[in-house]
């Protein structure tokens, strides 16, 4: 507890729930905000209120944006023939940072999990099948985590899309940039060898 009153304590408790912050760092952040009210605290409060009022999930791909459909779905510059299926909005942001993909996205909102009880009906799968079945989609890229649950989800999605007449592909698994073979696990090495290409 601080001795500064319940408002500050509540702010500390709320900030401490954010990723990367604990009670101690939340306390520091609150102190910093209070010291910089005009340049930081008020703009932050306004930004939070604006985001809360305007940001929504895209009704087509479930990406987050202030407009619906989102900027990616609405952009004529994006290739409508390729869909990239990702687990979460954070994956969309990662791919956009890399500027390596020019198609459109579909956010599943999770992966199947036997232990956490995540079932296919808990994922954003119904609209994926609709989108994949609709022209002009020609290829669906599964960019899901290379984990047991992620791979099982990818297989499940591939099964669901089979017979819709679209090509279903997965992103490659292998040696990361800067990675040394000695430190890679057996599965990654095996996948890298299977995905070898002529140079």
């Amino acid at each position: 507890m601080t001795s500064a009153g319940p408002e500050i304590e509540r702010l500390i408790q709320l900030l401490a729930k954010l990723p990367g912050l604990g009670p101690r760092s939340a306390r520091r952040a609150v102190l910093h905000l209070l010291k910089k009210r005009e340049v930081l605290m008020q703009p932050l409060a306004q930004a939070l209120a604006d985001a809360d009022a305007t940001v929504q999930a895209c009704s087509i791909c479930a990406n987050l944006d202030v407009v619906d459909p989102c900027a990616v779905c609405a952009s004529p510059a994006r290739d409508p023939k390729i869909l990239c299926v990702v687990q979460d909005v954070a994956d969309v942001w990662a791919l956009e940072r890399a500027s390596a993909f020019k198609g459109r996205y579909h956010v599943l909102g999770g992966v199947l999990s036997a232990l956490d009880g995540v079932r296919p009906e808990d994922l954003n799968l119904a609209t994926l099948a609709e989108r994949a079945a609709t022209a002009p989609v020609e290829e669906v890229i599964l960019a899901l985590p290379a984990t047991v649950d992620g791979a099982a989800t990818a297989h499940y999605v591939a099964d669901r899309l089979a017979g819709l007449g679209v090509k279903v592909t997965s992103i490659a698994r292998g040696v990361p940039v800067g990675g040394e073979l000695d430190f890679l696990d057996d599965g990654t090495l095996a996948a890298a060898l299977q995905s070898r290409r002529e140079t």
Binding site: A146, T147, V148, A151, A152, H155, Y156, A158, D159, R173, D185, D186, G187, T188, A190, A191, Q194
Partner: peptide, 14 residues
């Protein structure tokens, strides 16, 4: 580390 080797086998993963 078997999990990585089984990733391409949907039935085995299940």
């Amino acid at each position: 580390l078997r999990a990585g080797r089984l990733m391409d086998d949907a039935a085995a993963l299940d």
